[in-house]
């Protein structure tokens, strides 16, 4: 090899290695989360819901943003996790962390089984298939009222203290840190995944499926794995909400949940890991503030925000950050 070629290879390797090195701004969400605990002790209940929803949005980002799988049925996994955690707690197994793990496994199974069918399709058909899975589970939960409590929701959940030490309190202290810890672990795993060769191949499949087939990448299997991991994450998110609320009803499987999370992700930016961390708080805090001022017409302001973002800020908030960054670099 010539010296020049060696240098090119080395610099390419350097670029790839640099890609997954931690940067200072990646600590920001966690610093904000901890600061938020001390700055807004009255908002911890909202805070823990935001954290759980960020995790849900992350799970969507993995399949939609990285895998290019268009889904309107992510609530199926959220609900599977929520009902698993709920049923465990209602039948005397209220240890939260174990519940969380079992919920992840249960949701992953739902993801794996439905993924085998859903991922054989493409485009609009795929969209409808994901939706259908969620609708079917929703109706199943409604009908199986001896198990799930039907439309009135699951009765008698008793969630124990975390590690036998920390009770879920009225102020939401425990819930906040519990959700934060779960989110941190899932984020760490997801970050490793998207920067791994597996993650790069997912992006490859999203960008050019035919080419990935041509270079021998097992496209279907890669997608199925991503879909299953994403389902497990959504399941953890559902279990978090179920455990901190100590209640599950069929809305956990509802279409609105799948739809809203897409909007939040769009606001933040799709396919960039941190879109969820910006879009979800933006949406939920805006909703909370607008709804406190005007409980009837807050939807209007959310809608306006969305229209403005879609019209003027493709790629969400992170898209704006990118463009500003690019302009600054050009100036230099």
């Amino acid at each position: 090899m010539t010296a020049v070629a060696e240098r090119v290879v080395a610099s390419a390797a350097e670029t790839f290695a640099r890609r997954h090195r931690f940067r200072w701004y990646e600590a920001l969400p966690w610093l904000v989360a901890v600061a938020g605990y001390f700055a807004f002790p009255d908002y911890l209940a909202l805070g823990s819901q935001i954290l759980a929803t960020i995790l849900f949005a992350l799970s969507v980002d993995l399949v939609l943003g990285y895998g290019g799988i268009i889904t309107l049925g992510q609530a199926a996994f959220f609900g599977a996790g929520a009902y698993t955690a709920g049923l465990l707690a209602a039948h005397g197994m209220g240890a939260p962390v174990i519940g969380l793990l079992i919920a992840a496994v249960a949701a992953a199974l739902v993801g794996l089984i439905s993924g085998v069918v859903v991922l054989r399709t493409h485009g609009l058909t795929q969209l409808m298939m994901t939706l259908m899975v969620a609708v079917m589970l929703h109706e199943a939960a409604n009908k199986a009222n001896t198990v799930t409590g039907g439309a009135d929701g699951l009765q008698g959940m008793e969630v124990g203290p975390v590690f036998g030490l920390f009770h879920f309190d009225l102020y939401g202290n425990t819930a906040y840190f519990y959700c934060l810890a779960a989110l941190f672990i899932c984020w760490f795993v997801m970050r490793r995944i998207v920067h791994s060769p597996f993650g790069r191949s997912l992006t490859g499949i999203r960008e050019n499926e035919a080419r990935m087939h041509a270079i021998g990448s097992p496209v279907f299997r890669r997608r199925l794995v991503a879909y299953t991991i994403s389902a497990a994450m959504a399941g953890v998110s559902g279990a978090l909400v179920a455990q901190t609320t100590q209640f599950v009803a069929t809305d956990a499987l509802g279409f609105e949940r799948s739809g809203n999370v897409l909007i939040m992700l769009l606001l933040g930016g799709i396919g960039r890991l941190y879109g969820a961390f910006i879009g979800v708080p933006l949406y939920m805090i805006a909703q909370d503030r607008f709804a406190a001022i005007d409980p009837v017409y807050w939807y209007f302001w959310i809608g306006l925000l969305l229209v403005l973002m879609v019209t003027f800020a493709r790629g969400g908030v992170l898209g704006i950050v990118d463009r500003v960054g690019a302009v600054l670099r050009r100036r230099r």
Binding site: A45, L170, A291
Partner: peptide, 23 residues
């Protein structure tokens, strides 16, 4: 003090109740 639970959303309703009490 009015709060919107947005529909069938037990998690939201419970959170609003917590907030009305503690905040």
């Amino acid at each position: 003090i009015r709060r919107d639970d947005t529909g069938i959303a037990p998690d939201v309703a419970k959170r609003l109740a917590q907030e009305l009490i503690t905040r």
